[in-house]
Each structure stands twice: as structure tokens, then as C-alpha cells.
Nucleic acid binder design. Structure first.
Lengths: 202, 202
DNA sequence: ATAAAGTAAGTGACCTATTACTATCCTAAC
DNA sequence: GTTAGGATAGTAATAGGTCACTTACTTTAT
């Protein structure tokens, strides 16, 4: 128990900053997370943030990097363990839902970032993240079509859009209810309908 | 053609203000539409807005009223003309997509409003709007189940969430591509999968 | 003539980023 | 080991900008 304050290293502070942003986004509108709010959450003064980041956008970029890495890794690992394409899609979905339930601010940050006017780096990072995500979906779906598990006439592009929309719908519902727990509760039922829409009729 | 400026009535200005907000939301991040931007769009000075609205939130409230009325009316009219519940759902979906394609800022405003921290009136208006919307969906789906057109085991609540998520996914895709035209192009394919997910297997 | 609509110029609040200064850490020489 | 001293992390204060809203005054409509 140190009485006196203790300085953290640059890398530790960067990680702690990202964590603060992710946590704050879960509690309030991501659009108005101020540098003061981030610093307060970390027990620092506002100016201290600019020792580790050149500007606020750089903080958002670091956060997007964190999100991209964590989300894709978790989703990939979930898909790996599945024994069929359709099972992999379901595992991917549930891993994603689990991630979102733990970090409810994340999908809201991504959506907000996409809406920003300028050509910011953070925005482009979100775009490539989603495109990578969709690519994984399409690959799995093509495999499922070949295997006969998924509808042979399935429009993969549309199915990928709907996959993401499914999550977005659940996020919206949790915002409506004001309860994050809704996401986990409603996810299986919603995915069941989605699955029915892409499966082959046996 | 009047050379000299001409004053509009209070009601005309209120309507013009709402239109300016809806138009601006289509072009930029709804979150940072300033009163100055609204006034500029109308050819007024910023302060003039406060002759017709007590504060900025009141402008948003008026906009939400406008959205709610227009959207529900159009969607209801579309559903009316259909000859079966499933057809009504599809007509409702397409009418909604048509509305969103014409006013791309609207779904983004709604989502943004839901994220606001406080218990603002505009936020509550969005909540009730979506609940009314879902109620219509559930009613149609129950009718479709009774009629045998939709899956007898369909989870209507989940299906309503997914219906809205479907639109949200299309909006996200249009943001990714930067083209609103994407929405209209991709809508039929996405809805086809949705429909397959809720229909009864004949 | 009186009320309503609009203007121009503020005011205060808040937000990002900078600056001048201080505290802590780390390492190399004694 | 202790300690001088540079590098790094942090503070407090503030500059500069933007935004919502107000006020004093002017223009238009009835």
C-alpha cells in the first residue's frame, strides 16, 4: 500500500487510457467523452493525457486498435472450435455477443465513429475492421454452401450485412430497455431466426 | 420574386427548421449539428432560432415528432394495402427503406438520441416511437402465425428486434460504403433472408 | 401602432491543447 | 550501497476556440 503517488510507464498509461475510454463508453454517450472525463476516471489531471497521446484522436485510434484486436481474436477462436460452418457462425455470433455484453460501449463507439464527417484515421480503422469481419463471415458462408449446410442460393453479401445488423438490433434493444443484460437474454432467439434464414431446407 | 427579405410565420419557420435538421443529418454527423449550422441552412442568423424554440432540445423534439408522424403514417399505409400479414411486413419494410433512403440522417439521429445520457424528452419520444413500431410488427406477426403463413413457433419479440436490426444493418453498410444508394440496392436481398427466417416451411 | 420576426454583438460555460513548473524514476559513477 | 542528475510522468494554470443562449436594437407585417 503505497501512500505516495506512483508513476506508471508510458505503455501502462496507454493501456489504462484505452480501458477508461471503453468503460466510459459503456456508461455514457461515447460522442461526449471528454479528455477531462477520461483523466478523472484514471485519477489523473486532464493535461497528463497529452504526455502519452499527441491529441484526442490518437486516444480513439488506440481504442479502435484495442477493440479490433480483441474482437477478432475472440471471434476467430470461437469459430475455430466449431465442427461445421453453421456451428462456426453461431459460435462467432455468441462470442461477439459476449464481447458486447462485457463492453457495451464498443458497438456504440464503432457506429458513432462511422458517422464522423472527416476522413479520420480512427474512422478508417473501423471500416477495415468491419470489412475484415465480413470477410470471415463470407468465407464461412461459402464453405457452408459447398457443404450443403447452408442454402445453396444464399446471397452471402446480404447475409453478412444481416449478421451485423442482428447484433446492431440487439444493441438498439438494450439501449431502449436501458439494460445491457437484454443483449445476452435475447441473443439466442434472434440468432435462431437468422440461422433459419440462411440454412438449407432439409 | 421579392428583393426585400420576407418574414415567415412561426409555424412555417418551425417546419423549415425541422427540415433543415433532417437535411443536415443526412450530410454530417447528427451529433454535431450546431444551431449555427441550422440557421445558416435556413438563411437566418443563429439567434433567430430562439424566437421559435426555447432551446436546442426543443428543436430536436420537434424533429422527432416530425419523424414519428411521417414514418408511422407511411409504414401503416404500406401495410394496409397488403393482402397477407407476410406481404404487409414486406411492404412495411420497403416503405421504411424508402423513407430512410430519402432521409438517411433519420435512423442515425434516432440511434444517437437513444444514446444520450440524460432523460431528455426527445429521447423518450424515440423510445415510444420504436415501441409503437414494434407493436405493429408483433400484431402482424401474430396474425401471420394464426394464418399459417409464418412459422407457428416464431418468437415474435425476437423477430421484431431482428426486423429493426435488419434496417440498422443496412444503414451501417451505407455508412461503410459512403453511399446511401446501397440501402435501396441491398434491401431486397437482406429482407429475403429475414423472410425465410420467419416463414413457415411449406 | 403594436406585435412578431430578425439582427448583431455579446456572455458564460466547456473543451482541447499548451506551457511552466514539480515529482518520481532510473542509471552510472563513486 | 548511495547518490547525482538526466529523462520521464504528472500538475496547475491558462490560452484559444466553439457552442448554446441572451440582450438591445431594427425590420417587417397587420
Amino acid at each position: 500500500m503505497s501512500e505516495r503517488p506512483q508513476y506508471l510507464s508510458a505503455e501502462e498509461r496507454r493501456a489504462a487510457t484505452v480501458q477508461a475510454v471503453v468503460d466510459l463508453a459503456a456508461e455514457q454517450n461515447p460522442a461526449d467523452i471528454t479528455t477531462t472525463a477520461i483523466a478523472d476516471r484514471m485519477g489523473l489531471t486532464q493535461g497528463a493525457l497529452f504526455r502519452h497521446f499527441p491529441n484526442k484522436d490518437a486516444i480513439l485510434e488506440a481504442t479502435m486498435t484495442w477493440v479490433g484486436e480483441r474482437l477478432l481474436v475472440r471471434v476467430d477462436k470461437a469459430a475455430e472450435g466449431a465442427k461445421s460452418p453453421a456451428a462456426a457462425l453461431e459460435a462467432m455470433f455468441m462470442a461477439h455477443i459476449d464481447f458486447v455484453a462485457k463492453h457495451p460501449g464498443v458497438p456504440r463507439m464503432l457506429f458513432g465513429e462511422l458517422q464522423r464527417s472527416g476522413e479520420t484515421l480512427a474512422k478508417r480503422m473501423v471500416q477495415t475492421l468491419i470489412r475484415q469481419y465480413e470477410q470471415r463471415l463470407r468465407r464461412l458462408m461459402e464453405a457452408g454452401k459447398v457443404q450443403g449446410e447452408l442454402d445453396a442460393d444464399l446471397n452471402v453479401d446480404a447475409a453478412a450485412v444481416l449478421f451485423i445488423g442482428t447484433i446492431q438490433g440487439l444493441v438498439m434493444q438494450s439501449l431502449l430497455a436501458g439494460k445491457v443484460s437484454r443483449i445476452r437474454r435475447d441473443a439466442p432467439g434472434v440468432f435462431a431466426i437468422y440461422r433459419r434464414g440462411i440454412e438449407s431446407t432439409k
